[in-house]
Amino acid sequence: MTAVSLSGVDKSFGEVRALDGIELTLGDGEFVSLIGPSGCGKSTLLRVVADLEQPTAGTVEVAGKSAHRARLDQEYGIAFQQSGLLEWRTVAENVELPLQVHGMARAERRARAAELLELVGLADFAGSRPSQLSGGMQQRVAIARALAPSPRLLLMDEPFGALDEMTRERMQAELLRIAGESGAAVLFVTHSIPEAVVLSDRVVVMSPRPGRITEIVDGRRPRPGEATDLAPDDVEDVRESGAFFSAITAVREALRKGDAV
């Protein structure tokens, strides 16, 4: 089964060709990052998958359905750079939101939210207001909310962009654990090359005007229980491995090549 499959996807905004002939497939549980210069269409690609934007041409399938159907069935969860938590709801109520929207019974919702807050390590903050949490904690709540309906796919647009470097590295480790435990595939937009490499199975490099995929580089996502010398299963070890640096170099070169054309 594939989580996402895009073929021949074009998207124009008037004269601007934001996406041009995008071909991309995400397998179940696969972690794929999108990287590229500003304006190359990363967010647009994510929004097309989320059915927030209609492609000008091509087909988009999510979990084997049309993007529209997939949205109605809550097959994906979404998290943006701004956590977008509702201030009048407690942390737990924010996590419950997608379930409430889909009419799940209160007791069931409660239980699921508690489980998710446990997963993101915020069980003690269930009753807090979002503004009482740090930026990193808010982002974890947003991730828990996105995961609430047990989606097959997680869409994330620079979710850690506003965090400091230390928090960011901790969040990356958290995200890997959460993604592994939930089994969801992740489509992840970032501007950070190391972040893309350490998180991803594959790093998709894009170039602007028109927005195209120029190269796909293998990432260094650690696979728990499958550790080898080349692929350690601990994020910290990955960050210090030679393979990590060579992958970073590969992505950087792909970006430079994309820039030149």
Binding site: L52, V101, H102
Partner: peptide
């Protein structure tokens, strides 16, 4: 409500009525 919040509700397949009740009305207080 900011566009991002409205889109979040849209992405959760929330209809006009649910978005009104859970987002627009609380935000209008």
């Amino acid at each position: 409500p900011p566009k991002a919040d409205v889109e979040l509700f849209h992405s959760m397949a929330s209809g006009w009525w649910t978005t009104l009740l859970r987002l627009r009305l609380p935000a209008s207080v």
